[in-house]
Design a protein around this nucleic acid. Structure first.
Lengths: 187, 187
DNA sequence: TTCATTTTTTATCATTTGTAAATTTTCCCT
DNA sequence: AGGGAAAATTTACAAATGATAAAAAATGAA
């Protein structure tokens, strides 16, 4: 997935502003297991995934909770750092070796002030993420764990192949043991 | 809460663009019980709450789920209509007589193309809502129902006064009966 | 391959939450 | 103020999920 596809996927940009945006983007590679973004600092970069898969998780009390997966074409960002310039609530871990496009938050902020198309591109990005998050919140309330798992299977069949079930369980809001039971029941 | 406060609360706008925005905003009053926005159509307006309280709920299978409350200063919007120009998933009901500021989506879209400050204002709005929604999703996973209720009591004590417990329970992701039990335990 | 480690499954029991129905309380409306 | 409807609580029972422990399977490194 090349950078043009990633950017256009959010919102098609006219040439001039897309060029300006791309001038600030650099390709980087990182190994599986790396913690790309850290909960307890204000992150300076954001990333687009060219290849690979990552998870965002939040650490509390005893257990950690995976609440987001990103794969090819997705944007990796510490939302709270980015929005409120405060420490985030999430760590982001690479679950495979990853090829990423890196963009400095500071530069993006500058582009938002200069290019109205990039400002609207950033708006579209936030809006789309918001709809996705709201839909997940609602589905959490509506659906049983079994239904949520089935829906994930249907919508993201590759995720189950590429990611440990423990993380999937956490993402679904249940324990790994409970997910195992559900999988056994379905068969 | 006047319109300047509402708008600045999202993101302070320079005079010119704020004036342009305000020229498209009209004050309206509606009675308690009105369904302001409807799930099964593409909504043409969005609203800022001057006075009153509203809820967004989604209707599925048997039961309906309240997933958002809005009060003074909040923005009322059918997110999916607004973002994807598709039917939304939510109805929005006025829980009190409301004084609202009305803005046509179409006009706002036009302003996004014309004023970079308004585009960034819209971006900020979506970003802030996104962080709030993500935090709720995470808290839903981390905290027990009792903890979530206590947090709501602390953060929004007036909500419990102004809104039926059935809606609160739904918002917390539990049944009314379960909330009743929690309230009894706390005492 | 072989061994060690990690991941997944299975089993048991405790706890939480849901459902349904009855009862009490609160809120409107005339 | 009084009567009726809506909302909130309580109770009893059922179902789902969590916690824990241990076995089985899969994975990875030497």
């Amino acid at each position: 997935m090349n950078i043009d596809q990633v950017l256009d996927n959010i919102y098609p940009l006219p040439d001039t502003s897309k060029r300006a945006l791309k001038e600030n983007i650099e390709e980087v590679n990182y190994p599986k297991g790396l913690i790309l973004l850290c909960a307890d600092k204000i992150e300076k970069n954001l990333y687009f995934i060219k290849k690979g898969i990552v998870r965002a998780y939040s650490q509390a009390a005893a257990n950690e909770i995976t609440f987001w997966f990103g794969k090819e074409g997705d944007t990796v960002i510490s939302m709270k750092s980015y929005v409120a310039h405060q420490k985030g609530y999430e760590d982001i871990e690479l679950l495979e070796d990853c090829e990423l496009y890196e963009l400095k938050t500071k530069n993006l902020q500058k582009l938002f002030e200069e290019y109205i198309d990039i400002a609207n591109w950033g708006r579209k990005f936030a809006e789309q993420e918001l709809v996705k998050t709201e839909e997940r919140l609602i589905s959490r309330q509506f659906r049983t764990a079994t239904e949520r798992y089935k829906k994930l299977l249907k919508d993201n069949p590759d995720l189950i192949q590429r990611v440990q079930l423990g993380h999937i369980a956490s993402y679904l809001g249940i324990t790994q043991v409970s997910l195992s039971r559900i999988r056994a029941d379905i068969k």
